[in-house]
């Protein structure tokens, strides 16, 4: 939709059109308010016209069993017993976190297949996707999925089409308990701060905001009652960041690699220029014993009667 507010574009080494300044947005998911009704999953499926295959019961409340190219968000249910033996049902809406420093975009080799808008949304442009799966390799949250049908990568778009026309994402609109709210990133942080005060007053001393700095912060944030242990929430990473190996691969390796290849070829050229060919002297034309020059057939006469004297 808007193409003048692209602040990052995959496999692109120059600036993208980014003249338009827009405030950063964020979706805030208050885990403590979530009742696990999955209305957000249905809304996502409805708005984006996605129909995942009906799967099997895996013995948990999670359905489907995992994110897929057709399921961009998923409620993950974890049963946690604390030290006192109190059971807690920790339900987390999983999906793309829309990182400020997106690993998927860093890893993508196809120009423009992944873009990041000034408002913080990281969007996949499947038209440019080549299906290599590098985005999966780069993502610290294990979110993108390649479709079996068309070999393109898919994930939550934060309803960029809705947000672009001033609407909130479909999951936010449908959430019956107000566990998912949407607005400017600053407002969402303020809102989260109020929620955290409330949770602390109710005995959740470690309540806090999940906005991991390792990926520059995210545009999907969580309010967690146990912010000190994010892993309790179905393995939410405590300190996610782009993996160092991905950083090297998509960072220094690229220019240094090309430099090494180019330099080797250039060294060869200048070696040829300065040192000269490595030749077998006796095979050179004009060398002593060269048959082509010295063993002239006696039948051949060089005398040309027409030549001027």
């Amino acid at each position: 939709m808007a193409t003048q507010d692209i602040i990052a574009r995959s496999a692109t080494t120059t600036h993208s059109p980014s003249i338009r300044q827009i405030d950063e947005v964020a979706k805030l998911i208050d885990v403590s308010k979530c009742i696990g009704c999955k209305a957000c999953q249905v809304a996502c499926s409805e708005w984006n016209d996605l129909r995942d295959e009906v799967g099997h019961n895996h013995g948990t409340y999670e359905s489907p069993a995992d994110l897929s190219a057709d399921s961009w968000t998923l409620m993950r249910f974890a049963e946690h017993e604390d030290e006192a033996g109190k059971l807690e049902w920790l339900i987390r809406k999983d999906g793309c976190m829309h990182c400020a420093e997106p690993g998927c975009l860093t890893a993508c080799p196809s120009p423009g297949a992944i873009v990041q808008y000034a408002n913080g949304i990281v969007d996949f442009n499947q038209d440019h996707c080549i299906g290599c799966g590098y985005c999966i390799t780069g993502c610290p949250f294990d979110v993108p999925r390649i479709s079996k049908k068309d070999n393109k990568a898919y994930k939550c778009s934060l309803c960029s089409d809705r947000v672009g026309v001033g609407q909130e994402p479909a999951c936010v609109k449908t959430c019956p308990t107000g566990a998912i709210v949407f607005g400017s990133k600053e407002d969402m942080k303020d809102h989260a701060a109020e929620r955290i005060v409330d949770l602390k007053s109710r005995g959740y001393e470690n309540a806090g905001l999940y906005d991991p700095p390792g990926v520059g912060g995210t545009h999907v944030m969580y309010v967690l009652h146990h912010a000190d242990k994010p892993a309790l929430y179905s393995g939410l990473p405590a300190d996610p960041s782009i993996d160092p190996m991905v950083h090297v691969w998509k960072g220094v390796a690229k220019p240094l690699g090309l430099l090494a290849m180019g330099a080797t070829a250039l060294i060869g050229f200048f070696h040829y220029l300065r040192v000269g060919r490595n030749v077998v002297e006796e095979d050179e034309p004009g060398a002593v014993g060269d048959a082509a020059v010295h063993k002239v057939d006696p039948a051949v006469h060089e005398f040309d009667p027409k030549a001027p004297r």
Binding site: T137, M245, V246, A253, A260
Partner: peptide, 24 residues
């Protein structure tokens, strides 16, 4: 995923050494 990340890096590195060697 960790093995995949190691592999993309090693794949690029091995290819670089191979290409430079072939240029030589």
């Amino acid at each position: 995923i960790e093995l995949i990340r190691l592999s993309v890096l090693l794949h690029a590195l091995a290819a670089l050494v191979l290409i430079v060697s072939i240029i030589v």
